[in-house]
C-alpha cells in the first residue's frame, strides 16, 4: 500500500515538567540498579577468570576448581534448605496467629518482637549458636545417632561440640524467620474481606476460612518471603563461620563434626590468609553463589507467575 499524502502530524502530547522529572528519576534509578548489578557481575567474572583458566596443578591443594567449589556449593545449599524447611512453616504459622488468631493488643506486640529479631546483628546469632544452641543440642545429636542412625541424615558420629550442619541450619532458620513472617503477615492481612466472608458464609470454621481465602491469596507472598529468606540464608557469612565446624566434603550427615563449609563462610575464613591465585579461586566461588542466588530468584518468580490466572490479583 502506498500513501498518497503524508498522514496529518500527530499533535505532540503536552510534556509537563513534573512528569519529566519523575520519569527521569525513575528511569535513572532503574538504570543505576542494572549498572550496579552488571558491575558486580563483571568484577566477579574478571577476577574469577584466572582461577577458571588456570591448570588444576597451580590451584591451592592441587585440586581442580570444580572439586574445590562443589562441596562449598553443596554446604551452602544444604544449610539454606534446612533453614528454609524449618523457618517457612513456623513463619507462616506466626503470621497467621498474628493476623487471625491473636487478640489485637497481643498481635501488635508480637509483630514488633518478631520484627526485632531481624535487627539483631548476625555475629550475635553466631555467638548464640556456639555458646547456647550448639551445646544444648549435643544430647539430642547423641540420641539421634543412637535411635535414628539408620537415616543417613543422622548417621553420626554425633558431634561432641554441637557445631554441625543442623545447628548452622537452625541458626539460619531463626535469622530468616522475621523476613518470611513479616511478608506473610502483610499479605495475609490484605486477604480481601469479600472472600473471607464468602468462606464464612458457607459455614467455614476459622481454619477452613484461612485455607480457602487467605492462604491461596497469600501464596505468592509466602513464596516471595521464603525466597528473600533463602537469599539471606545463602549469603549469610558470620553466623555460619562461627557455628559450623567445617572440615569435610559433601555429605548429608547433619550431625557429625565434619561438614562442608558454605561459600560465604569459607570466603570470610580464608580470605585474610590468601594471596595470588587463591584469591581468584575464592572469587570464583563467589561467582557461583551469585549464580545460585540469581537462579533461585528466577525460579521463585516462575513459581509465582505460573498460575497467575488463579491468583487473587484479578
Amino acid at each position: 500500500m502506498t500513501l498518497t499524502s503524508a498522514p496529518p502530524a500527530q499533535p505532540r502530547p503536552k510534556r509537563r515538567p513534573g512528569d519529566r522529572i519523575f520519569a527521569g528519576t525513575a528511569t535513572s534509578a532503574g538504570i543505576l540498579i542494572l549498572l550496579v548489578l552488571a558491575g558486580v557481575a563483571v568484577f566477579l567474572v574478571t577476577e574469577a577468570w584466572p582461577a577458571l583458566t588456570a591448570p588444576a596443578a597451580d590451584l591451592p591443594d592441587g585440586k581442580s576448581l570444580g572439586s574445590y567449589v562443589a562441596p562449598l556449593v553443596f554446604g551452602t545449599l544444604l544449610a539454606a534448605v534446612i533453614a528454609l524447611i524449618v523457618a517457612t512453616p513456623l513463619a507462616v504459622a506466626i503470621a497467621l496467629f498474628i493476623t487471625y488468631y491473636a487478640p489485637r493488643r497481643l498481635a501488635a506486640g508480637l509483630g514488633y518482637v518478631v520484627d526485632l529479631l531481624a535487627a539483631i546483628p548476625s555475629v550475635v546469632y553466631g555467638f548464640w549458636g556456639i555458646a547456647a544452641l550448639a551445646p544444648s543440642l549435643v544430647p539430642f545429636y547423641g540420641w539421634a545417632e543412637r535411635n535414628l542412625g539408620f537415616i543417613p541424615l543422622f548417621a553420626g558420629p554425633a558431634s561432641t561440640t554441637g557445631k554441625t550442619m543442623l545447628t548452622a541450619g537452625l541458626v539460619l532458620a531463626v535469622m530468616i524467620l522475621p523476613i518470611i513472617s513479616a511478608i506473610s503477615r502483610e499479605v495475609f492481612s490484605q486477604a480481601p474481606a469479600l472472600h473471607r466472608e464468602a468462606a464464612l458464609a458457607l459455614g467455614a470454621t476459622r481454619w477452613e476460612m484461612i485455607k480457602m481465602a487467605v492462604l491461596p491469596y497469600g501464596k505468592s507472598g509466602i513464596i516471595g518471603g521464603a525466597m528473600l529468606g533463602l537469599g539471606r540464608a545463602l549469603g549469610e557469612t558470620l553466623a555460619v563461620a562461627l557455628v559450623l565446624s567445617a572440615s569435610g566434603g559433601i555429605t548429608f550427615n547433619l550431625i557429625s563434626s565434619s561438614n562442608p563449609s558454605t561459600i560465604a563462610a569459607n570466603i570470610a575464613l580464608q580470605f585474610p590468609e590468601s594471596s595470588g591465585l587463591t584469591v581468584n579461586v575464592l572469587i570464583a566461588s563467589g561467582l557461583a553463589l551469585f549464580l545460585i542466588t540469581l537462579a533461585v530468584n528466577m525460579l521463585a518468580r516462575w513459581v509465582v507467575t505460573r498460575r497467575a490466572d488463579f491468583s487473587g490479583a484479578n
Binding site: 472472600h195 458457607l202 459455614g203 491468583s311 487473587g312
Partner: peptide, 16 residues
C-alpha cells in the same frame, strides 16, 4: 451458616 446460605452485594467467587 451451613444451614443458612448467603449471597453478597459484590460477586465473590474464590479467585484461586
Amino acid at each position: 451458616r451451613r444451614q443458612i446460605g448467603m449471597v453478597f452485594q459484590r460477586p465473590n467467587p474464590f479467585p484461586t
